[in-house]
Amino acid sequence: MGAQMIRERLAFMSDGANEGPRRADHLSAAPAPPADATAEANELLRAVARGDEAAFTRLYDLVAPRVYGLARRVLRDPAQAEEVAQEVLVEVWRTAGRFDPARGSATAWVFTIAHRRAVDRVRSEQAGAERARRLAATQGETPYDEVVDQATTRLEQQQVRRCVQTLTGLQREAITLAYYGGYTYREVAELLGTALPTIKTRMRDGLIRLRDCLGVEVAA
């Protein structure tokens, strides 16, 4: 797989997959998630840790579309994404007591589990060539539900997208291939025809730049 092909696909991966047709714009008045959604998720997860099923149901509604969406983005297969999403959400219930608020937010904790599971699945079930094929095959395809839902998250998404655009090309490519494509940094280096230490460094300094742009902080 040549670097040029990869770059073309990246153009899709970095902003095409969920952006979808602009016909969603008429929904743009839909409320963004409340500003205190993070605090709410933290509270809910603490309640879940105490065995509160009602809290779990509310947490489910808050995070399931992103857990499923992320799995779907990485796996490019709705059936596998559904399986992974179910595993992840049950895992959230099972291990809620292990959540440590000093180490980050509840939503990040959930999406970290989700990303990890999706990546593990894609690596074990889809060989590199198969992944590349799927990536190409789903190019430009945006299911209706994603178009609608995107409207509800426009603000948050816009912030992330704006910050991603502040990255250098190589930072963006490296992070995007790893996060949405599930590639290891060795694979990313190979795909982009770039030296291993460079990729490693770009992933780190790219994420640091994203962190600063998004204003992410975790208490020391």
Partner: peptide, 11 residues
């Protein structure tokens, strides 16, 4: 984890 924000899809 914020990169997941852009992946909403109704399950």
């Amino acid at each position: 984890a914020r990169l997941a924000d852009g992946t909403w899809s109704v399950p």
